[in-house]
Nucleic acid binder design. Structure first.
Lengths: 198, 198, 198, 198
DNA sequence: GATGAATGAGTATTCATTCAT
DNA sequence: GATGAATGAATACTCATTCAT
């Protein structure tokens, strides 16, 4: 048990370095310096630097899903639930540069693996919510819920990853969202308040 | 003139390597081997490996814009023009992994620079088309044309970069496009034929 | 302890190469070949080639000072003590070309650092001796002992660094020394025996 | 003739770079950039970078000797003539770092060559003056004039190369000079005025 | 006389990984 | 479980020199 914690500590330190400096630019030496362990200790716990990346990715996904599940349990309007869940699943601002790292690895196998896993975890959660919204008559789109959810995720990721969102962009984004789900005009405009405009 | 061609040849070879192996995994040695030049020749023409990346990016953007401009001049239905232009500006399938490279560089400055330049070049071209479509009554959306175009680009990039598009996704994509621009339902469904389903 | 010796061994090898071929002309490859270690081992122990130069310089200064201190403890005529100490502090004939290396580095910071350190260490030691000689009435110069010692060091360094000393030069040198310190004519002529004429 | 001037121009540019950045740190590219000539032009006029160094050294020595000869012709007190000549032969403050360059080259052949040539040129000129001073009864030293002159040169070089001369050092220096030549105490104290104290 | 494109041997440094203790 | 000394392949970049035009 204690050993397990030791390992998690090291992963946390690696995580911090990865999001700060990027994966490629973080050396094993950096990690052991920050974790205050010896080189051998690193390789006792982890097979390679690459495996460490996987552990870090796992950690991130797990925390996102955890945040999302908490929200789903909460008592709030269904549209809000959907939006908050999307936001919960997004990589947090600090985690963002790690996103780049994941894209980066020409090792596309890993890249797809992590990316797919996020979608894999997120789409079902969100679809469940969207379906209920349909049942309640809030959403009037056809049945391709999963695809619509997927597109929603793509859009929200791309739009807010790169921090250059202005007011009109947000308006168009909301308009698009409402249309994707067939929601009543204005029913999602509360999103405006959630996003800082630059 | 001849020298200029020589240089372009080297850029082309580098380009081929970058999209095959990725930027980080292509060494200068790889490039000079493929271009059959000496180390010094590389550094005579290019200041650094990073500068070579910029040259490659320029080459890509230039060719995309060129393709797009040709299409705009052509005589075709306005909706088709819009869609074909978007497709022309997309990085071609082979260029795709280079996309990763651009994301990758923790050197976000460069990343943004190239990304912005694509948007910079594409948004005006497309907006021009979209506005005409509005004038002709084909599009009925409000006036945030640039933002709508921008969102369109994001969506199309993300959806078709990662080659996992199925039929339903395409249907939803088309549906979304039509709604973003306020086009008549079905008016963009010709897109289906343009995209290979996997 | 053992590791410390290993490191010292490498420094010694580097030292031998530096004085043989000069600093600039000794590559890290040369050093690791001579020390029979791997490239990584070099950089495990030393941050850079430049840092290695500092280690070598330290080694030289330390050994000179050590030689000097031994002499001071010995029981001999005071004039002899002064002269022997000066000779002990000089870089040894083999160390001579390293002197050039130190001069060379346009990195004047380092140059001054090492040079100052030699003076810093040597002047006090020698002044102490010279003062005692004054007290005993052997030297009759005024009180600018430190400056006189400093000048003595400069002269001896320059004269015997470049190996082109003939008999008359030595005679003049001795004459000058005696006059600098106000010593009795002939009292330092024993120096003649210490220096090989070319 | 014109070509000869062209060549001299390039040498002058090289000279400026050598004293600014040092010989090793000046690349042929630097020189041709500053001289605004092509690579081929450099190698048309000079066999190698090393040969260029020789040309630069020649230039320096020539200008020093020229300065010295002018002074000798002038009408002034004999002691002054000696001192001014020494100062004229010293590398000028800006030329100083080139001095380091000359020392540097492990290519000791060249090093000695240039150094010897300075002495070679300077010692006769100065000895001539010193002999006359003896004849006039101003100097009372024995006959090793050349050696005394040589020592004088060494001392003045070393003392004023490194710019850390204080008042006492100058006093001791003058005292030593007077004693080396057997000049009357105080007869050389005018030197004080010539040297800026730091 | 002058050009500048091409050369390739040489250099310092990085870093993931291994393994004896 | 943990250590840290040792490894060596890989990498980007420099620069004096050559030579066809």
């Amino acid at each position: 048990m204690k050993t397990e914690n030791r390992k998690k500590d090291i992963v946390k330190k690696a995580y911090e370095l990865f999001i700060t400096k990027g994966y490629e630019n973080t050396s094993v030496d950096d990690i052991i310096a920050k974790a205050k362990i010896a080189k051998g200790t690193f390789y006792y716990h982890f097979d390679s630097k690459e495996q460490m990346l996987e552990e870090v990715v796992n950690m991130m996904i797990a925390s996102g899903v955890e945040r999302a599940k908490k929200i789903i349990k909460q008592d709030m309007k269904i549209e809000e639930k959907l939006v908050y869940t999307i936001l919960a699943l997004r990589v947090t601002p600090e985690e963002q540069s790690l996103q780049d790292v994941i894209h980066e690895k020409e090792n596309i196998v890993l890249h797809k693996k992590t990316n797919d896993r996020i979608i894999e975890e997120a789409v079902p959660l969100l679809s469940q919510i969207a379906r209920q919204a349909k049942k309640e008559g809030l959403f009037t789109c056809d049945d391709n819920i999963e695809e619509r959810v997927r597109m929603t995720l793509i859009l929200s990721n791309e739009m807010f990853d790169h921090n250059e969102t202005n007011k009109n962009q947000i308006l168009v984004f909301i308009d698009t969202l409402e249309k994707i789900y067939g929601a009543k005009p204005g029913s999602l405009s509360f999103i405006t308040k959630l996003i800082r405009e630059d």
